[in-house]
Amino acid sequence: MTTRVNISINARRYEYEVEDRTLLVHFIREQARLTGTHIGCDSSNCGACTVLLDGQAVKSCTLLAVQADGQNVSTVEGLTGSFNGLSPIQEGFRQEHGLQCGYCTPGMLMACTALLAENAQPSESEIRHALEGNICRCTGYEMIVRSVQWAAAKQVQQ
C-alpha cells in the first residue's frame, strides 16, 4: 500500500508517494534527503530523531510519514539565527562544548529549541528533565545543560 504524502519541512513542500509503513524519519532522511536528523534506536528511547511537528518536539521514528501528511516539520537544517547564521541554541552548544561526536546533537538541538520556546528561563532541573528522552553517550550532559543556559541568557539579552 502506498499513499501520496505532502509534508512541509523547514517551509518547503515535499510530496512523495510512499509505502504506508514508511517512518517519518525515513521520509525526512531518504525522501527529502535531509540527513541531519539521525536514528539511534528502534524503541523510541534515544531522541536522535527529534524534530518539531507543528512546533512540538516529537520523535520522528515513532510516527509514520502518512501521520504527518499536511503538517509542518522543522529539522536541524531549518535552524537559523544571528550567530553567524546559527541560532542561540546552536551557538550555545558551540560555546559550551555541548557536543562531541555530534550524532545525538541534531535531536538535542531540536528538543532544546522546543524547551526554550516554551520556557525561556528553565532551571537546571527543568533542562535536565526536558532532555530526559535524548541520550548522549559522549558528553555526560553537564556541558549540554550549560549550552542551554548560555542560549537562555543570550535570548534575554536580545
Binding site: 532522511r29 540527513t35 541531519g36 536541524v76 546559527l86 546552536q90 558551540r94 555530534g102 550524532y103 546533537t105
Partner: peptide, 21 residues
C-alpha cells in the same frame, strides 16, 4: 579554543555513513 568540528555537526551538514545514498 572552540572546536573546528562544530559548525558542520550543528547544522546537520556533517556526513555520517548512513547519510550516503
Amino acid at each position: 579554543v572552540l572546536r573546528k568540528e562544530d559548525p558542520r555537526l550543528l547544522t546537520g551538514r556533517a556526513t555520517f555513513v548512513d547519510d550516503l545514498l
